[in-house]
Write a protein that binds this DNA or RNA. Structure first.
Length: 270
DNA sequence: ATCCAGGCAGATG
DNA sequence: CATCTGCATGGA
């Protein structure tokens, strides 16, 4: 058993070989989190969770256990995925990042976050995202701020986006918020990955890489690998087999996350 | 100071 | 279809 819902506000995770809270938080798929004495606090949409890390388990205290059971993808056995990725250089990055899981993020939050992420650095756009929540999101009593709802996002002007530090992306964000209002997650969810990709590419500020991030981190399309500046450098270092896994494999997105974490966060070489 | 950051849009071959 | 360029902004 990977994890269990103890009650509506608590989850316990038992298999830490496939749940590394530190690696998950630093793998570039969640930007609203804080380190605490015992672990992390993380926010998603209007929800919050406190992760307390113990030697043999992680206790997740949260506002909605069902939400975070899905968010942390706790029904998926990552041992199966890692077996499918057992190539030499991937093995090396899985040794340090093998506890990463692909989160099921809120799709509006992922769209806005990754539009802001383009040609930006993580430290800076994380600051922007937190400012966005504090300025336009609803305060959660004693637990920080929610990500702004679509209604709240729609009140933000071009000048406001600029003031948040979004730079030239302000116009993209204005239009993307409008477009989000005309899209339906439950419909998009039913689309093939190819059709979903096309739908996402129609949004302002969304190109191939941002669309891939949205598909992986909000639609859980594990076969989609966002190829960013880090992966472009990495891919030439991989064997042809591994390149095929990254570009076309069933778990390309997961493999990509292991590589991204090892390179970008741990500054390892392949 | 120059280059780069989880790239994209628009223009030009 | 592929390639080139401008773009806000702050950190290295």
């Amino acid at each position: 058993m990977i994890a269990q819902i103890i009650n509506p506000h608590q989850i316990e995770v038992y298999d830490l070989s496939q749940f590394d809270a530190y690696a998950i938080m630093h793998s570039g798929q969640v930007f609203r989190y804080q380190t605490t004495n015992t672990g992390f606090t993380v926010w998603s949409a209007a929800h919050w969770a406190e992760l307390r890390i113990f030697p043999d388990k992680v206790i997740i205290k949260c506002d909605d256990a069902a939400y975070f059971y899905r968010y942390f993808d706790l029904t998926t056995d990552y041992r199966i995925i890692k077996n499918a990725l057992a190539f030499p250089k991937l093995q090396k990055v899985m040794e340090v990042g093998g506890g990463i899981r692909i989160l099921q993020g809120d799709w509006v939050e992922m769209v806005i976050s990754f539009i802001i992420s383009a040609n930006n650095n993580i430290k800076r756009f994380t600051k922007t995202l937190n400012a966005l929540c504090e300025s336009y999101g609803t305060q959660i009593a004693g637990h920080g701020y929610a990500f702004p709802t679509l209604t709240q996002l729609a009140t933000i002007t071009v000048a406001d986006w600029r003031a948040l530090g979004c730079g030239y992306r302000d116009q993209y964000l204005m239009k993307a918020v409008q477009q989000l209002g005309q899209m339906d997650f439950t419909v998009l969810q039913t689309l093939s990955t190819d059709a979903l990709n096309k739908a996402l590419l129609a949004m302002a500020g969304v190109g191939p890489k941002v669309a891939a991030c949205i598909m992986l981190f909000a639609f859980h399309r594990l076969e989609v690998a966002p190829i960013d500046t880090w992966l472009k450098k990495a891919i030439t270092q991989l064997t042809l087999d591994e390149q095929a896994v990254i570009l076309h494999g069933q778990y390309a997105g997961v493999a990509q996350q292991y590589i991204f974490y090892a390179l970008q966060h741990l500054h390892q070489t392949l």
